[in-house]
């Protein structure tokens, strides 16, 4: 496991990145993924695609807000990752409104959700 790196993308949103082995990366999302922070999040994810990591986990236990622009970034990243032969898991969602947003927009139909990081890692 490589050292955990933190990206302070803004005062409202932080992103951490941990790499496991040669092909797995875990992004930890913290704070608010909104119209202001989503473009920065998208840029950070694009860099990861160029690094060739195929197993991606988005850990959201510290995420407290998401709006539609954040959902759009995740869909775009999902498609690009799958085109490279990879896939994404989402885990740790515990905010009730975020759970509601994912459920009502149908995200569980296209992405596997896991209760915690351990089960998400084992799912690959």
């Amino acid at each position: 496991m490589k050292e955990k790196r933190l990206f302070h993308l803004s005062k409202e949103f932080h992103l951490s990145k941990e790499e496991f082995g040669s092909d797995m990366v875990i992004f930890g999302l913290e704070g608010a993924l909104n119209v202001q922070t989503a473009p920065e999040f998208e840029e950070a994810l694009k860099k990861n695609i160029s690094e060739g990591k195929k197993k991606v986990i988005l850990e959201m236990s510290h995420l407290n807000y998401i709006s539609s622009i954040g959902l759009g970034v995740i869909i775009g990243y999902l498609e690009e990752t799958r085109e490279q032969g990879g896939d994404i898991r989402i885990c740790g969602v515990n905010d009730p409104v975020i759970q509601d947003i994912f459920e009502t927009t149908g995200f569980p139909k296209i992405i596997q959700f896991h209760k915690d990081l351990g089960t998400a890692r084992l799912s690959f």
């Binding site: 759009g72 970034v73 869909i75 775009g76 999902l78 927009t105 149908g106 995200f107 139909k109 296209i110």
Partner: peptide, 14 residues
């Protein structure tokens, strides 16, 4: 409700 499978296939983010 948005058809998320269609949005994903068509790479639409909105």
């Amino acid at each position: 409700a948005p058809d998320i499978e269609k949005l994903e296939k068509e790479r639409k983010k909105g």
